[in-house]
Every structure is written in C-alpha cells, then in structure tokens.
C-alpha cells in the first residue's frame, strides 16, 4: 500500500498515461482529453434527455477514480483548503472563491477555444504529432510559466 500512498514514480506515471492514450485510440479512435469530457458532462447536465456520451461517462469516471484512490490510501480529504490561494488572501473565503472561479473561466474558455488542454493537446495531441496540438502546448506552457513567476514567485511552493 505504501507504493500507492507515495506519488507514482515519474517513469511509471508517464508510461501509464501514454498507455491510456494508446488504449483509447485502439478502442475506438478515441482521444484522451479532459476538456472534451467536461464539455460532454456539462452538456448532459444541462440536457439529460440527450443521453450520456462517452465523454460524459469518462468525466464521471475521473471523479470516481480519484475517489477510489482516496479510499484505498485512506487519505484525509483536503476539504476547502487551497494552500497557495489561502496564503495569498490570508484564508479569506470570498476572494478565494472569486480567484478560483475566474481561474476556472480562463481554463474553460481557453481550453475549449484551443480545442483541448494539458491532456487533449499536451499528451494525446502531441503524442499524435499534431502540429496544432504542439502549438497549443508550447503556448500554454510558456504562458503559464510566465504568469506563475508573476503571481507565485514569493510563495513557498
């Protein structure tokens, strides 16, 4: 069990996510991608009569899979804590809620606009050697590294 409670060693972690990408492709030419999954799930939540797409099911599976990990490792739930943002606002809940919601808006709008996020473009798309995915990935990595420097440089992370 201690193997599970420790962070997965990176060579194994990378191999596993690559394998999952290949498995989805082999299954039915499906692209690994959390943004499309989120969009599918949200679409279902808004209009349940349309039925559950594979993407919506994948998204629900992600929630369940993380819950399974938490149960197996007897992890203490983090609850409402968000250390980095809590430090920024001294733990005040309202600024934290606004900060995280606005961040979420950028994440959702940007990923949808680009057609994918770290999984869909970063791993699946770049793995497929798609030039558009490479352009997206280089753009969000460079942007995020710059913004992180501006916002979190003084933070003990």
């Amino acid at each position: 069990m201690s193997f599970l409670t420790q962070a997965c060693p990176w060579p194994l972690a990378g191999f596993l996510v690559g394998l999952l990408t290949v498995a989805l492709q082999w299954m039915d030419n499906l692209p690994l991608g959390a943004t499309g999954a989120a969009a599918g799930f949200f679409g279902w939540a808004r209009r349940p009569t349309a039925g559950l797409s594979w993407r919506a099911l994948f998204f629900a599976g992600v929630i369940a899979g993380a819950a399974l990990y938490a149960a197996l490792t007897h992890a203490t739930p983090a609850g409402w804590a968000y250390p980095a943002v809590d430090r920024l606002f001294g733990g005040a809940p309202l600024p934290k809620a606004v900060w995280l919601s606005v961040a979420g808006l950028f994440i959702g709008f940007g990923a949808r606009w680009a057609g994918g996020c770290t999984s869909g473009h970063g791993i699946c798309g770049v793995g497929r050697l798609q030039a558009g995915s490479l352009a997206t990935t280089m753009t969000f990595v460079v942007t995020a590294v710059i913004v992180a420097q501006l916002v979190w440089r003084g933070s003990p992370l």
Partner: peptide, 30 residues
C-alpha cells in the same frame, strides 16, 4: 490554438489545476 492556449495558460497558472485535476479533486474531497 495560440489565443486559447494563452488564456488556458493564464488560468492554469492562477489556480494550479487543469480540467482533469478539477474533476479528480472533487473525487478526493477537495
């Protein structure tokens, strides 16, 4: 790709999460 990637990068760096982890965090009770 460039416009969306840049906007996504901003959000990723503001919160330290991307769409997959957001869903997984819910499962973990975050």
């Amino acid at each position: 790709h460039l416009v969306g990637g840049a906007l996504f990068g901003i959000g990723w760096a503001l919160a330290g999460v991307c769409p997959g982890p957001i869903a997984a965090q819910l499962g973990q009770g975050r």
